[in-house]
Each structure stands twice: as C-alpha cells, then as structure tokens.
Design a binder for these strands. Structure first.
Lengths: 206, 206
DNA sequence: CTTCATGGTAACCGTGTAGTTACTTAATAG
DNA sequence: CTATTAAGTAACTACACGGTTACCATGAAG
C-alpha cells in the first residue's frame, strides 16, 4: 500500500511545478525588496527553500529568473486588470487602484526597480503590456466622449497621472514617510489617502 | 619666476577640493544610473578620473560615498528650493517643479534609488529634509487659509500629490514610455505634460 | 529488471569587486 | 634645510557571489 499512499495522500517527492512556484515566489520577494543588482541568488534559494542548482535548472541564470518573475507577475496582474468590470469607470476609480496596489506592494516595487534599472529601451513583455495600456487608454477616451471625463486633455496624460498618484507613494515609501510622518503600511494612511484621491478626482471631470 | 607661474596661472598639481568634487560628480552620475548595488566603484574612479584609493581616502567606503553624494545633492537642492521666491504660490506651480525636475534627472533618480533601497526606517539627513518638507507644507496651509487652495484636504496629501505628479514620470521613464510611446527626454513630452499639469491644477483650487 | 530523462543535492570554482598595502611626491611649517 | 603631514599611485588581496561539476534518486516506458 505504500505506492497508493505515496501517489494519493502524500504529495510526490518530485514536484517540478511546486518547485518552480516556490522559486518564483521567493524571487519575487527578494527582487522586490532589493532590486536585481541587490538581490542574492543564494538568499532566494534558501528562502524557497530549494537547492540553488534548481534555480539554474529552471531559469538559466539570474537575469532569466528576473525576467520570469516579471513575466509571471505581469501576467497575473494583467489578467486581474482585464477581469475587472469592463464597464467600470476607469479614472474615477483611483482609490480602488490605490487600494489594490496597497495589497500588492511587491508588484509596485518590482515595476519600480525594473523601470529604474532598465538600460536603454528594452522592456520585458513590451508588446503585451502596451496592448493592455492601450486598452486602458481607449476606455478613458470613451469616457471622454461620454463626457464622464474632461475631454480637453490627452487620455495618455490622464493615464499617466492616475498611475503616478496610485503608485508613487507605495513605490517610494521613504519619500512618503518624509512628507506624512507615517509609514505607507499604516492602514490609516491608506484609508485617508484613498479618500483624498476620491476628492481630487474632480480634476478629471468636465 | 616658475613659482609665481605655478601659484597663479597653472593650478597646483595637488588639489584636494577639485578631486573631491570630481569624485562626487562621477559618483552622482554612476549612482543615479545604476543605484547603489549596481554602481561600480572602479567605474566611478575611472570616470572621475582619479585613483580609486583617493575615493576611500575621502569617503571611507562605498556607503560613505553614497551618503556623501546624497548629502551633497540634497544640500544643493534644498538651497535651490529655499532660494525660490518665498511668496510664490507652491502648488499652483506644478509645471515649474516638473520642468526643474526635467533638468535634474540625476537628482530625481538618486532619490528614487534611495527610497527603493532604503531598508527599515533610516533616511539620510532626515532632520534637515523634514524641516524643509514641513516648511513647504506650511506654505500650502497658508494658501489654504487664503483660499488659494481648497481647504478640505490635508496639506500633506497635496504635497504628496504634487511630488508624485512631478517626479514619477521622470523617475520611472520606462513606465512613462509604455503609456505615452514617447521618451521622457522628448522636449515635446516635457512641454505638453507641463501644460497638462497646469490644466489639472484646478483640482487643487477651491 | 533495465533504461533513460528529469528532479534533486552537496560541494566546488572563477571572477568581479570592494577594500588595502606599501610606497612616492607635493606642500607647509619650524 | 628638514621634518611632517596630506595627496596621489600602482599593485595586490580577500571574499562574496554567480555559476558549475559530479553525482544520486525517482518514476515512467519498454
């Protein structure tokens, strides 16, 4: 009966999928915390916990792992975004975006590291990301046509402003703390800032 | 007469001040481009150009150099900010702030790296920076009292929003490019975005 | 049972990089 | 002139860290 026990109750000793996931999760944590150059492969492996060799087995090298983490996280995020109520007003929901970013700080920080460290002009998964961005901007344009948003400014700038206001405080916690005296992890801050975003949304209405 | 020639026309062979400045300038460039972990001490030394040993002579170690660069740049920036017309309206001048940030991209990027990499809660030169921040917030409060700014939101949040909108696009050029399709160094973008900031300043008025 | 591809481990290695050593040369004071 | 201190150089080192070698284990296929 050991065979059945092994195959059913106890998860198999070999489990590639789980190992991959573990590595990705640990790597996301480390890269989000320290960036690519600051991250240590050994730390990721120890955190997984998984033998370092496996990391190279699955992802080639440190850069490959970083790209995989980026892709993985981006894919999850894009799916999440696309799943949102398609009719839901976009820019009017800055508080919502902000709250979502609060829950996925790793995502915000990873993006920030990527943007800062990016040399030249190559972005990971650029085509797909641009597609989703364009869709988002398209929605804004529709809202402008429907007079839900002020039509006298370019929708791209609205998108950029939305992104700035909902990401910056979380991406740069030290600067935020310097201004507010509070930590960005403080639930009071998160609630109050969301309310503030709600209040100044008026700027985007006609 | 060689003595007079040396002391007047030709700068002395030994020149500590110049060397220090050179190192700081080179280090600012490298740290702004690659962050602390990504920066290479040898690259800084070669760029100065100065013998690597001098770098340790003046600044102790890599961390000391980074802090010195930060302090130096912050000091210059704070002096610049304080020198600004004290009566000039603060928040209404988002376009101005943005343009100034456009000229000092290194400053913005350095700040971004610092904020991202900061572990825990220690900020370099925290006291002085907080002082200046408080002053800036105080100005906003005054403007609120004078009904130049809407008084129903906390001035700290206005400061944070101003900072987000004027720094984020420059600190994260890749994200900006993804949204706009243009490089942040594009003069057209800089002009148009400044106009946009002008337009949405209305959000902050009563 | 054997084979073979894949999942997994421990110990190791080469190199890039922060930091030093040992020394020379210039300025300055007594 | 001499002593002393600070500025400057080239060569070196220790070691952290990314990446590898050599090996074992598991399970599915024949």
């Amino acid at each position: 009966m050991p065979a059945t026990a092994r195959s059913k109750a106890r998860p198999p000793v070999r489990n590639p999928e789980r190992t991959r996931e573990r590595i990705l999760a640990a790597a996301l944590h480390e890269f989000a915390a320290r960036g690519f150059a600051g991250a240590r492969v050994d730390v990721i492996a120890r955190r997984a916990p998984v033998n370092k060799r496996m990391l190279y087995h699955y992802f080639g090298d440190k850069g490959g792992l970083f790209r995989a983490v980026l892709r993985h996280t981006i894919a999850r995020r894009l799916a999440y975004v696309e799943a949102q109520s398609p009719g839901g007003d976009q820019v009017l929901t800055m508080p919502l975006w902000f709250k979502q970013n609060c829950e996925g700080t790793d995502w915000v920080r990873l993006l920030a590291w990527e943007s800062l460290q990016a040399t030249g002009n190559s972005i990971c998964d650029e085509a797909e990301r641009r597609r989703v961005t364009k869709r988002s901007i398209g929605k804004i344009r529709k809202h402008q046509a429907a007079r839900l948003l002020r039509p006298d400014v370019r929708p791209e700038f609205l998108q950029l402003a939305k992104t700035s206001l909902t990401m910056f405080p979380l991406a740069m916690p030290q600067i935020t703390r310097l201004i507010l005296g509070k930590s960005v992890t403080d639930k009071n801050f998160q609630r109050d800032y969301a309310k503030f975003l709600e209040a100044i949304s008026a700027a985007f209405r006609p």
